[in-house]
Amino acid sequence: MTALSRPFAEGFARDWLAAWNDRDIERILAHYSEDIIFHSPRIAKVLGNEAASVFGKQALRDYWTKALGAAPQLFFELDEVLIGSDALTILYTNHRDELVAETFVFGPEGKVVRSIAVYR
């Protein structure tokens, strides 16, 4: 994939947040490659283990399905979109009024191959 453009990054951010706010797991997952690696400090709490990462789209589907079930009030509000060469970071505020930064690294097919979520 070539360097990311501002229109691509903003379009990705809008669609990604809308998919989450609509609670549409398939639309959320459409942004990710089959071999996605996702990092988040929330994984261990949701899954009830010590995992810090989820590997693969099916494992991510399982994790997010469980997480969505536990957070019926989930809502994300876009604050900012930051652009890198093959990555972008979305700054957003969640339903718990936490500032969240999520970085997405894109593979050659334009799908996210690695994502890292961090919280204030």
Rank of each mutant, 00 (worst) to 15 (best):
R6L: 13
G84P: 01
I83A: 09
L68P: 02
H39G: 13
L47Y: 02
E80A: 15
I83C: 10
G11S: 11
A70M: 15
S53I: 02
G69R: 07
K45F: 03
F8K: 06
V46D: 06
R96F: 03
D22N: 15
H31A: 10
S53L: 02
G48M: 08
Q73T: 14
L91M: 09
E102W: 00
T89E: 02
G56S: 13
D86L: 04
I36V: 15
A19N: 10
I83H: 07
R42K: 10
L82I: 08
F55T: 05
E26M: 05
L47A: 04
D24F: 05
R96C: 05
P72M: 14
L17I: 15
A59W: 06
F76G: 11
D62E: 15
V54N: 00
A67I: 14
N49C: 06
A51N: 07
L99T: 07
A101C: 10
N94P: 02
D22H: 11
E26F: 02
D22C: 07
P72Q: 13
I37K: 08
L68Y: 04
E102Y: 00
R61D: 04
L29E: 06
D35V: 07
D86Y: 03
F38T: 03
L29P: 01
D97T: 11
G48R: 08
T65D: 15
L88D: 00
D86G: 05
A9L: 12
V100W: 00
A18K: 13
R23M: 07
A71K: 12
F38N: 02
D62Y: 06
E77A: 13
E26C: 09
Y32H: 05
G84C: 01
A13M: 04
A70I: 07
I25K: 00
A101M: 06
